[in-house]
Simulated assay, not measured.
Amino acid sequence: MDRLTAMEAFVRVIETGSFSAAARQLRVGQPAVSKTVAQLENRLGVRLLLRSSHGLTPTEAGQGFYERAKRAIEEADEADLAARGAGTGLSGRLRFSATITFTRMHIIPRLPLFLAGHPALTIEAILDDRNVDLIEEGIDVALRMGALADSTMTARRIGQSRRMVFGTPAYFERAGEPSTPAELTGHPAVVYAQGGGGATWTFRREAAEETVTLKDSVRVTAAEGVREAVFAGLGLCVAAEWMFQPALARGLVRQVLPDWTLPSIDLWAAFPTGRRASAKARAFADFVEEQLRGTGFGL
């Protein structure tokens, strides 16, 4: 039995909470993972896991072994990279998660440049407008926006985007253009219903402050739907600049109330709790931060 392979199987079982989830991440059958953990316990001569109808729980010995095994795996990965030399690039699989529209517009078009520098690396993009569990999904790094719900998550801010009020020229020609935040309540709105969105906003201009609640005619749970609803003339919206930046430059949408400011939205590179970020994850986060300058983001 390969010791490092057995360690990795055990670590995945602990982090995912089941043999089946660990097997999916390792791309092997569940019986193979169960057998590997059993052989590991036999070799060590201790029980590492308590199995019950409620799931798997590490024993005291199992918890200690997990923490040391995880560090050993990370050190082995770093040793491989160091031995190959910095000039040879990264290798293996990088699994990242992000929202659908953001990735389509700002990440996928830039991936060829990242992969050109690391041709031995493969990318898996897990796209969902809802936050996925980094441990359960085996995510190396997540690109998340807004306030982070998990305060224990390891994260660093890599960008910031302004929020603006957008609508199409055709919509404003038909419905009129609001000149104050209060006038927004007289317009139908397309509301983004996920984290970082909502119908109530506070506008500021110098010492003045106005809080308004938009009259939502359409409520959408994906940014792609917000964009299409606005382009269809269903109403105006409050959205991050990155969502409409290309369309704004082409005149397909127009910003209104430019003298009023809204809270900006932060972009974070988030890493699994309790795990040191891998060299692949750090390199990808650095790449995204550098590439997004001038695209509706900036620190």
Rank of each mutant, 00 (worst) to 15 (best):
I135Y: 10
G85D: 11
L143W: 07
A232Y: 06
V37I: 09
A240K: 01
P58I: 15
Q63A: 11
R162M: 10
E67Y: 13
T213R: 14
M243P: 03
A223L: 13
R12P: 05
I100D: 10
M243F: 12
A283G: 09
R27K: 04
V256N: 05
H187D: 07
I139Y: 04
R43P: 00
L143Q: 13
F96P: 08
G146W: 04
H187M: 11
L184Q: 08
F271T: 06
A283R: 08
A147K: 02
V191R: 05
A277T: 13
R227F: 05
E183R: 07
G62T: 10
H187L: 03
A207D: 07
M243T: 14
A98Y: 04
G87N: 14
I139W: 01
T295V: 09
R219L: 06
E60L: 15
G294L: 10
A22L: 15
K70H: 15
V141I: 05
A120I: 04
L90K: 12
G146N: 12
V28K: 02
I14F: 02
L257Y: 00
M243Y: 08
L292I: 13
S91K: 04
L113I: 11
E206M: 03
S278K: 02
R204E: 10
Y192F: 00
G196E: 11
F297M: 06
R174T: 14
E206R: 08
Q255V: 12
A193M: 05
A61R: 07
E136Q: 08
I108S: 03
F271E: 15
Q194G: 00
L299R: 07
L90A: 05
S91P: 02
A83D: 15
E60F: 12
I158M: 11
M145D: 05
T202I: 12
A76I: 07
A189W: 00
M7W: 07
T88E: 10
R47K: 12
A38I: 14
M164V: 10
P258K: 06
D259N: 11
R27C: 03
L184E: 13
S217L: 09
V132H: 05
D133W: 00
T211W: 03
A170D: 06
R174N: 13
F271D: 15
D2Y: 05
L148H: 01
I265E: 10
A120M: 05
F114G: 01
M145G: 09
A23D: 04
V226H: 00
G186F: 03
A170C: 00
T101W: 08
P31L: 15
G45S: 04
L50Y: 04
I100Q: 08
V37E: 06
S53I: 10
G87Q: 14
L292C: 14
E183D: 11
R174I: 15
A98V: 02
D216Y: 05
I135D: 13
G196V: 06
R204I: 08
A283N: 05
L214F: 12
L236H: 10
